[in-house]
């Protein structure tokens, strides 16, 4: 990435307008940040000219690399570039609010189904699907990483060590994560000329 979003001089955009723009994005964009790329571009770049296309791409790439949910981090970065820290807070709060409200209402009105009932059976198979989804997500992350073969072997070893340590030896997940992260940072090397971006960007 050659450029990074710099806080620009604030355009004439009020906090209420900022909140409304991100509320609309949060209410209408489905499928995560990358799936919503066109809608984001239409709203922020084409319709309102708040950021350039290049800034949008740079912010999306950066959002994928910092420890935070990508779509939210992107919203926070746009908000920051327009109105500083307050803008960042407002943008990402209003971005998550529509989805969070729907989730809240849904969990309040639904309940845990008894085994053998329609709801209970559906919840059970959804649980199975999510177990598969987690495993699939883990595989996809490891597959997409741009590292050498020797580093990939080490990485797969670290991947296996975490569940074995936690479920096999009762070690703390946090401890295992920190230790393996440090070990990985020491041992895992990228393929020369490749960037870590590509692996990170392909996951959603």
């Amino acid at each position: 990435m050659s450029s990074t979003p710099e806080p620009s001089s604030p355009p004439p955009l009020g906090l209420a307008s900022l909140a409304w723009i991100f509320f609309k994005l949060g209410a209408l964009a489905f499928g995560g940040m990358w799936a919503a790329m066109d809608r984001i571009e239409k709203e922020l770049v084409i319709k309102r000219g708040l950021i350039t296309k290049e800034q949008q791409v740079a912010m999306m790439m950066t959002a994928a690399l910092i420890p935070a949910p990508k779509f939210l981090a992107f919203g926070g970065m746009v908000g920051y570039s327009l109105r500083g820290y307050i803008g960042s807070c407002i943008a990402l709060t209003t971005l998550i609010l529509p989805g969070a409200s729907v989730v809240l209402v849904a969990v309040m009105v639904s309940r845990l189904g008894e085994p053998g009932t329609l709801l209970g059976t559906v919840q059970h198979t959804v649980g199975l699907g999510i177990v598969g989804l987690l495993i699939g997500n883990a595989i996809r992350m490891a597959r997409n990483s741009k590292v050498s073969w020797s580093s990939r072997l080490i990485g797969c070893g670290l991947w296996a060590v975490v569940p074995i340590g936690v479920h096999g030896f009762g070690l703390s997940l946090l401890l295992m994560a920190v230790v393996t992260l440090a070990l990985g940072a020491w041992l895992i090397q990228p393929i020369p000329g490749e960037s870590a971006h590509q692996g990170a960007l392909s996951d959603e």
Binding site: N137, A138, I139, M141, A142, N144, S145, K146, V147, S151, G155, C156, L158, W159, V162, A177, T180, L181, L183, G184, A185, I188, Q189, P190, A196, G199, A200
Partner: peptide, 8 residues
């Protein structure tokens, strides 16, 4: 690079 495998 490292986090990819750890998070997996």
């Amino acid at each position: 690079l490292s986090a990819t495998f750890v998070i997996a």
